[in-house]
């Protein structure tokens, strides 16, 4: 399992990389790093999952790729632009080529479904309203929600809101899509439909997709490569098959859902629980 994954399944895959992260360190506080010397490369057109326990730095990595935060050391190159040294105005421009699906959709609650999906199109293009209407209808149809144009986000179920958010993030046909926990809180049908949609849209648009997820079964069906993170570093990587058969204890514990292993489930309390109940501590 080398650092540059050699996935052979996507025939139209080009040789260049959509994302290159090299020796990145980042922390919100100086003395508490969240990412420690992280390096990874993501090929254009591939679907990659970033996995790991809660709080291991997966979402922070997505925020670095989207340019919302900048690394303290190292470099982040996205779509052939080194965004670690780019001014914010240029990053904003580059983001027109990216899309992001947030964990809970993040739909604009004061706008209808139509206005949400049409938002990027209205902000970044001069397309006539009649054409925007057609594009919105196409995007909604792609996520199976054509006919919901006039509904407000409050009227949608969690799964529907996520699919509308997917349609919104796809409005400009981005080259790079980021999904933050796309499968969390979905019923089995919505979950399968979402996984199928991500796969279908990614292949149809030759789009690079990065999934931050905990869902092993659904993501293993669609991803080409997996980066496994623990405590702010990439501890393991490989194809779904390689990850399933790995002997890395942390990955095994995560994949098998075991309580005992390198990942601690219990908070490392300073006091002894039994003694605490006996009133040992004053």
């Amino acid at each position: 399992m080398d650092n540059q994954h050699d996935v052979k399944i996507v025939t139209h895959m080009q040789n260049d990389y959509s994302v290159i992260i090299e020796n990145v360190t980042f922390g919100y506080d100086e003395d508490r790093p969240i990412l420690k010397n992280v390096s990874l490369k993501i090929r254009q057109g591939s679907i990659v999952a970033i996995m790991g326990g809660s709080g291991c730095g997966k979402t922070t990595l997505l925020r670095l790729i989207s340019g919302q935060i900048k690394p303290q050391t190292g470099s982040v190159t996205v779509l052939n632009h080194n965004i670690s040294s780019m001014p914010n105005r240029d990053i904003l421009h580059l983001r027109k080529r990216m899309g992001m699906l947030f964990q809970f959709g993040a739909l604009f609650t004061d706008m209808s479904v139509y206005e949400n999906v049409a938002f990027s199109l209205k902000e970044h293009t001069n397309l006539p309203e009649c054409l925007i209407k057609k594009i919105v209808a196409m995007k909604l149809n792609a996520v199976g929600l054509f006919g919901t144009e006039n509904m407000m986000p409050q009227e949608l179920s969690g799964g529907m809101a996520r699919r509308i958010a997917l349609a919104r993030s796809m409005a400009l046909d981005p080259e790079l899509m980021m999904y933050d926990e796309p499968f969390t809180g979905l019923d089995p049908i919505s979950l399968n439909v979402s996984a199928m949609l991500i796969n279908k849209l990614s292949n149809a648009l030759n789009q690079t997709s990065i999934l931050v997820t905990h869902d092993i079964e659904s993501s293993f069906k669609i991803v080409d490569y997996i980066y496994f993170m623990a405590d702010g570093a990439i501890t393991s990587q490989g194809t779904p098959e390689q990850i399933r058969n790995t002997d890395n204890l942390a990955v095994r514990q995560f994949v098998d859902g075991e309580i005992n292993g390198p990942f601690r489930f219990d908070y490392p309390a300073k006091l002894d629980y039994s003694k605490y109940l006996e009133g040992y501590y004053k």
């Binding site: 989207s66 919302q68 904003l92 421009h93 580059l94 983001r95 027109k96 990216m98 992001m100 947030f102 964990q103 809970f104 993040a106 739909l107 604009f108 609650t109 938002f119 990027s120 902000e123 970044h124 919104r168 993030s169």
Partner: peptide, 21 residues
């Protein structure tokens, strides 16, 4: 509330400045 529900972040990721918009 827009900040709490990631709407501001979503707008920013969609290349729209929340200050301007």
């Amino acid at each position: 509330l827009m900040k709490a529900t990631e709407q501001i972040e979503a707008m920013s990721v969609m290349a729209v400045s929340p200050i301007k918009r």
